[in-house]
Amino acid sequence: MIDPSNISLSNFVATWHGPATRDPDPAPPSTEWLPQALHEWHYLASQRNSPLTFTTSMISPQEIRAGVDGKATFMVDATADWSWSFDIHNPDAVYEAERHEAWALNPEQLAQFLVHNATREAIYAAPARLSAYFLPDRALAEVLEPLEEVAFGRWNWPAPGYRIFMADDMLVEIVHTRGGSAWDIEVATLKTETLSRLRTIPDADWRTPGA
């Protein structure tokens, strides 16, 4: 297992999104109350012309507000059905909630949560991707052979059971299919040639997302 605390957010973003392309936006004085981990994420995002998120949206630091319950929403999913917040009295604590539901404590603290989300989102920004549905256990084992699972906390979004595996130039996200007899899988890599190994795996019906 890879310990998420050993993953540097800045190094990860540089690896999967490339080096900074512009000067960072200065943090307005009105945002000084925000947690340092959130400042770092927006600092890194402001250095790049391309987005760092695709299935979630980070709320602009100037627009983050604390509610009467002490929760400050900093991220929503693409449909705004799910939201994530931190507690102003304990800024390391992350809470999640589906629309019209009460806040529930996420198992990850804020810094790790942001690394987790950056890792998920990098899959959708990678230059080379493959996906497959109803992948049998044997084929999955071949896909994952050179990778190591990241010990991220379990999320309820987009659904329970998602897991992430990593190698130097490859990310894989898996989840059991409905019914649990096989796997749905997303593969992302920095090198197109890395995918050639996967295409030779029997019983893997690969698709190219967006093709």
Results as ranks from 00 to 15, higher is better:
Q62K: 15
S85F: 06
V172H: 02
Q62G: 14
S83L: 08
F113E: 02
R163A: 11
E108Y: 03
L38H: 01
F74D: 01
E121V: 03
T53F: 11
P107K: 03
I123D: 01
F54S: 11
M75L: 09
L135P: 00
A111Y: 02
N90K: 08
L105V: 08
Y162A: 12
E96L: 08
E40N: 14
I88A: 05
I174K: 01
V115M: 07
S46G: 15
D137A: 14
L171Y: 02
F74N: 01
T31E: 04
E32D: 14
H116D: 09
A132E: 01
F86T: 04
Q36K: 10
A78H: 12
L52E: 07
E40G: 03
N49G: 15
E148S: 10
S131D: 00
A128V: 01
A97V: 06
I64H: 11
L140N: 05
I174G: 01
E121G: 03
A139D: 02
A167H: 05
D92T: 09
S57I: 06
P158R: 10
S131R: 04
L105D: 00
I59C: 08
S46E: 11
T119C: 14
F152W: 08
R48S: 14
I123M: 09
H42G: 09
M58P: 05
L52I: 13
W41Y: 15
Q47M: 14
W155N: 12
W103K: 00
